[in-house]
Design a protein around this nucleic acid. Structure first.
Lengths: 201, 201
DNA sequence: GTCTATAAAGCGATAGAC
DNA sequence: GTCTATCGCTTTATAGAC
């Protein structure tokens, strides 16, 4: 009986995950309003009823993805930051990460924009998002500070200002990259970071 | 009779303008899908019928605003660029322009994001937008080149890359500014531009 | 837990009166 | 040109069968 319950729980969890993955894809492709619960369910191979068995509402489902995505992003930042030995290495990693996300996975890029717009409008989400961003900024700021102290660099920007600029540039470039893919210079993110973090000699 | 027709035409134009202004506000506040034709008409003091007397569809209305906004943006860039005497003056003007738009007029900031998301999804709009951006980039690039030749600066970035970075940063910072208004350093846009365009001495 | 059927509401767009 | 009334469709969410 214990075994049977486990199997059922596993199946439940799997369905939930399938629905989440479908929601990611559908929300990204059609936007929050364009993606109906029907379409999300259908894409996952279920009917609407299954969705409402796992989530209270369409918004609840959207917020579940948002939460998942937030944690992932913070984790990625941790991972990137902890493994850096030099500023140039840091820049290289950021540039690679940026390119891989944008090129290979336009879904996340789209969804990121959808979240941003949603966060702009919903006070509670905005607050959560703001907290997460501020944390990321602090982490990046500290990492830069550590790396810069090793190599004697100076700049007109504080490390905090640098961190805000780095994340802003990431989002801003992602938008243009999406709209005018072939016209935006490749590796511009990395080059711009170089220009900002490594003073020309 | 000629006079009577003129009055009617003027009234028609005025109504159209009122509808456009209402649409700007409503689309910004609620997004493309959230803003119903009913709400837009009501906010302007008319009924739905009036909207459909002036525009073929909701999308048509949205695109009319987009077009208007595009022209305005290009014009603003022209104006800013033509009046610059030095790089530092250029940076100052851009920073002021950025702050005034973001602080005084969150409506345009919101609408800009709405347009961007729309452009990401609609091929025809994306193409138009892409063309406009590329033109802006070229203009800014040329202006920077002119200003830099006066003052002997060198950089690891080409003027074209600088221009893309400037506009990307503007959009990226605008997003964060909207989400975490009080935490983003004031005048960061200007400082970041300084750091990029004026090599530290 | 997942299905089908349906309720209740909102949407874009049109028709016809004025 | 602007209004009211309405059509036709889609949506979110719920109820009940299995």
């Amino acid at each position: 009986m214990a075994r049977r319950r486990l199997t059922q729980e596993e199946r439940k969890k799997e369905t939930r995950q399938l629905l989440l993955e479908s929601a990611v894809e559908t929300f990204a492709q059609l936007g929050f309003h364009g993606a109906s619960v029907d379409k999300i369910a259908e894409y996952a191979g279920f009917s609407k009823g299954a969705v409402y068995a796992h989530f209270n509402s369409k918004e609840d489902l959207f917020l579940a993805i948002l939460e998942q995505q937030m944690l992932l992003h913070v984790e990625n930042i941790h991972q990137v930051i902890d493994q850096q030995h030099s500023l140039s290495h840091f820049i290289e990693t950021m540039d690679e990460y940026f390119l891989s996300v944008r090129q290979e996975n336009r879904t996340w890029s789209m969804l990121n924009m959808e979240f941003l717009l949603y966060a702009m409008r919903e006070e509670s989400v905005r607050h959560k998002w703001s907290t997460m961003i501020t944390e990321s900024v602090e982490q990046i700021s500290k990492a830069i500070e550590k790396l810069m102290s090793k190599e004697n660099h100076d700049s007109t920007l504080s490390t905090n200002e640098m961190a805000w600029t780095i994340l802003s540039l990431e989002n801003g470039l992602a938008i243009f990259y999406y709209i005018s893919q072939d016209r935006v210079p490749l590796h511009l993110y990395g080059k711009a970071l170089q220009n900002m973090l490594l003073s020309p000699r």
